[in-house]
Amino acid sequence: MVLSHLHGDHFDRIARRSLDTSLPILTTPHAARRLESWGFGGAEAMATWQSRELVKAGETLTVHSAPGEHTPGWASWLLPPVMGSVLRASRRGRRAVAEGLHHGGHAVSTVAA
């Protein structure tokens, strides 16, 4: 799972109760710390421009962390840090089947891992 940021409309009580706590969750350092404190051992903090490859059954998803902003201006200090993401999917070493998909950072995106 790619979690752009953490607050109630993106990771609510139902998600907290229902999700497998070992599920890989790629997110901001801020969100990863909170998720780990809730028992989500699969939470992984990503610094801006860091990349992570997830491989399963011959398919690879590469997640590149990109700068993100929840809102511009003065209100930004009221809101949690945000991570944008660029995703690249490939199958069995072949060229990318999806390349350059940008997730701008205002939702939860589930990705096959």
Rank of each mutant, 00 (worst) to 15 (best):
M1T: 09
V2G: 02
L3K: 00
L3S: 02
S4R: 00
H7A: 09
D9I: 08
F11D: 01
D12N: 13
I14V: 13
S18Q: 06
L19V: 08
L19A: 10
L19F: 05
L26I: 02
T27W: 02
T27K: 00
T27L: 09
P29Y: 00
A31M: 11
A31G: 08
R33D: 15
L35Q: 02
E36R: 06
S37I: 09
W38S: 02
G39Q: 12
G41W: 02
G41M: 03
G42K: 00
G42R: 00
A43V: 03
A43G: 03
A45I: 03
R52E: 02
R52F: 01
L54A: 11
L54Q: 09
V55K: 14
V55M: 11
K56R: 15
A57Y: 04
T60G: 05
T62Y: 03
H64D: 07
H64A: 13
H64K: 14
H64F: 15
A66I: 05
P67F: 05
E69R: 08
T71C: 07
P72G: 11
G73I: 08
W74E: 15
A75K: 11
A75W: 09
S76A: 14
W77S: 14
P80V: 05
P81N: 06
M83L: 12
V86W: 01
V86I: 13
L87E: 12
R88Q: 04
A89F: 04
A89C: 07
R91F: 08
R92K: 15
G93R: 03
A96P: 03
A96D: 12
A96L: 03
V97W: 06
A107D: 15
A107S: 09
T110S: 15
